[in-house]
Simulated assay, not measured.
Amino acid sequence: MPYALHRLAAGSFDLLLDGTVMGSVVRDITADGEVRHWRAELLDDLPPLQRPQPFTEIEHRFDTLEEVLAWLGDAQIANN
């Protein structure tokens, strides 16, 4: 699973699978700036059998960005 993240803005990434944007990874913060969690989500509401692995739901939540990267098979953040 060659996933990659491309930074859009602070706390926001496009999620690419084999070079195609298929989702996003975003940081949710409180009004005072505390990070609540990170979300990895698909752009399309695909039926369960058509979702790319490891997605079992349209959206998954994580405590840290590192957890997201590991869950995506050690996805890399592109530097461009």
Rank of each mutant, 00 (worst) to 15 (best):
R27F: 01
I77L: 03
G11I: 02
L46E: 11
P52K: 10
G33Q: 03
W38T: 02
H37P: 00
F55Q: 07
R36H: 02
L16V: 08
E57D: 15
F55H: 07
H6N: 10
H60M: 03
L15H: 04
L46Y: 10
Q53K: 15
L17D: 04
D32I: 11
L65F: 07
S24E: 10
R7S: 14
E41P: 02
D63I: 01
E59I: 12
M1A: 14
T56M: 02
E67V: 00
P2V: 05
F62S: 09
I29F: 01
D32W: 05
E41S: 15
R27E: 08
G73V: 10
R51A: 12
Q53L: 14
R7Y: 04
L17K: 10
E67C: 03
Y3D: 04
L42E: 08
V68M: 04
R39C: 06
Q53D: 14
T56F: 01
P54H: 03
D14F: 09
D44Q: 15
Q76S: 14
S12L: 13
E57V: 05
A70S: 12
S12G: 06
V25M: 01
V25H: 01
L65P: 04
V26S: 05
E66Q: 13
P54K: 01
L42R: 06
P48K: 12
G73A: 04
T56R: 04
D28M: 03
D14M: 02
L5K: 02
A10W: 01
H60D: 09
E41F: 10
D32E: 13
Q50S: 13
Q76D: 12
L16K: 08
F62W: 07
D18W: 11
R27H: 05
A9V: 06
D28V: 10
E34C: 01
L17H: 12
E67K: 04
D18P: 02
L15G: 01
P48C: 11
E57Y: 11
E66D: 15
G19A: 05
E34H: 06
V26A: 04
S12A: 15
E57Q: 15
L42K: 05
P54D: 05
A4S: 15
R7E: 15
L15S: 01
R51F: 11
P2N: 11
I77M: 09
F13Y: 15
L49M: 12
F62D: 07
F55L: 09
L5D: 03
D28A: 04
G19V: 07
V21M: 08
E34R: 10
D45Y: 14
V25K: 00
T64F: 09
W38P: 02
V21T: 12
A9D: 13
R27P: 00
G11C: 03
D63N: 12
I29Y: 02
P54C: 00
E34F: 06
P47I: 04
L43F: 14
F13C: 03
T64L: 10
L46W: 14
